[in-house]
Design a protein around this nucleic acid. Sequence first.
DNA 1: ATTGGTTTGACAATGCGTTGTCAAAGTCGT
DNA 2: ACGACTTTGACAACGCATTGTCAAACCAAT
Lengths: 154, 154
Amino acid sequence: MADEKWSEAGEAVTALILDVFRLNGRLQLAGDRLVAELGLTSARWQILGALAQADKPESVAWHARNMGVHRQGVQRIVNELANEGIIELLPNPQHKRAHLVVLTSKGQKVYEEAIALQVPWVNDLSEGLAVDDITTAQEVISLLRERLLTASNS
Amino acid sequence: MADEKWSEAGEAVTALILDVFRLNGRLQLAGDRLVAELGLTSARWQILGALAQADKPESVAWHARNMGVHRQGVQRIVNELANEGIIELLPNPQHKRAHLVVLTSKGQKVYEEAIALQVPWVNDLSEGLAVDDITTAQEVISLLRERLLTASNS
DNA sequence: ATTGGTTTGACAATGCGTTGTCAAAGTCGT
DNA sequence: ACGACTTTGACAACGCATTGTCAAACCAAT
């Protein structure tokens, strides 16, 4: 492969990457606005989702690994949400320091309210788009993500 | 449209959005690593790109508008890059405060070095991907971005 | 049981983006 | 001209993610 010029796929992926950056900014903004009235942000919302979908209570570090982000970021938000009574830190019989994180009933309610806002929002956003095209887009995005994941672990 | 359940497209877009978030994080990381040796970051790189592709010198606020981000973020990085001699602030005959931002020859060189690193990286990343699929993905991403853009301006 | 490595949470520093405020500079309507 | 509005840069505060360090807790090998 020549080092000085893009391949055809390389050029297309470069354009895709630039659009992913721009879309990410917009999504972040839209997400923040959507759930702001619930006292949530995109980052808080994502953590609530991880807690809601976990089969059983897990530690902060476990969730961070599962989400592919760093412990510290999750920890800060978890502490805030715990102070607000949205989540709860249960003692962990297996590990004295690694508390188990769970949603409180209040947290469960907030999360469901967030979903109730997201559903009409995303249905409206995606109206008229071909499901096949969306799926193709998701597969491409997902593949690139996996390649970067394995590349960064080497 | 029912408010309680995702449409088929809505569900697919929801999955796509989650992958866009994850890919964005990986790309940011990979970009930072790629150009770290040049003293750049993803954010700095993006601003150099905007300057390099501008037809003529423009103000910080103009570039921020053009990139779809806020003045303040661009301003901070522009000031840093100016201190490092990578860009230069020219006096603007039209406006005493709004200096015109241009790349120095050193900045031009750094930007070209960044591209020289990006080309083999992206060619490798996109190897074996169908160009049609990439293009479809980019069109979907771009369309979503435009819808969010017009929605946020209302 | 002691040692050494791993996991975990606490804490701090930095980079980046957003939001808001302020004053200087420019623009437009009258 | 004059005043109202807009644009622009400076400054500050906050939210978020990354990186690094530290000590407590756990775990495995001997």
